[in-house]
C-alpha cells in the first residue's frame, strides 16, 4: 500500500515531507544535544515548579508525590530516568508512557495539569550567561 501512496504523490508532497522532516530533525537534534549532560526532572503542576529531582545523582529507586489537579500523582525516579507510577485520569496516558529519560519527550498529564520535564542540569544558568553576552 505504501508503494501506491508513494506512486500517487507529486513533487509538492515530497517537498512537504522533506521540509517537515528537516524541521523535526533540527528540533530533535537541538533537544538531544542536551541529553548527554547531567539530568534533572522538573515537575510542574499548573505551570508552577513544585519538585526538582536530581536524576543523575539518584542511586536507588525513589518515589515522590505531588498534588495534581485530579488528586495525588505518584512519581518514581531512577538513575537518569523518571516515570509516573500512579495518577487519577481517564486514560492514564502518562502512566502508560513509562520511563522518560530524554529532554525532548516530557511526561504530560493533562487531566492533572502536571508536566514532568527532563532537563540538562545547569541549562538555565548557561542561558542567562548567553543573554549577558548578547
Amino acid at each position: 500500500m505504501w508503494l501506491k501512496v508513494w506512486q500517487t504523490m507529486k513533487i509538492g508532497d515530497f517537498i512537504v515531507v522533506a521540509l517537515t522532516l528537516a524541521f523535526v530533525t533540527i528540533w530533535g537534534m537541538s533537544s538531544f544535544s542536551q541529553s548527554s549532560k547531567q539530568l534533572e526532572a522538573h515537575v510542574f503542576v499548573e505551570q508552577a515548579l513544585v519538585l526538582t529531582i536530581p536524576l543523575s545523582e539518584i542511586e536507588e529507586t525513589t518515589q515522590y508525590e505531588v498534588a495534581g489537579a485530579n488528586g495525588p500523582v505518584i512519581i518514581e525516579a531512577q538513575k537518569n530516568q523518571v516515570r509516573v507510577l500512579q495518577e487519577r485520569s481517564p486514560k492514564h496516558l502518562c502512566s502508560i508512557q513509562g520511563w522518560a529519560s530524554q529532554t525532548f519527550l516530557p511526561i504530560v498529564c493533562l487531566p492533572n495539569k502536571t508536566v514532568i520535564e527532563v532537563v540538562a542540569k545547569g541549562g538555565e544558568t548557561e542561558n542567562e550567561f548567553d543573554s549577558v553576552v548578547r
Binding site: 530533535g28 510542574f44 504530560v108 508536566v115
Partner: peptide, 25 residues
Amino acid sequence: QIPQVIIYLPVLIVISLITGSLIGW
C-alpha cells in the same frame, strides 16, 4: 496553559505525516 507540551510537536508532526498520507490515500 501548559507550555511544555510544545516539546511533543515534532513527534506529533512525524505521526501526522504517516496518518495524513494514509488518510489522503
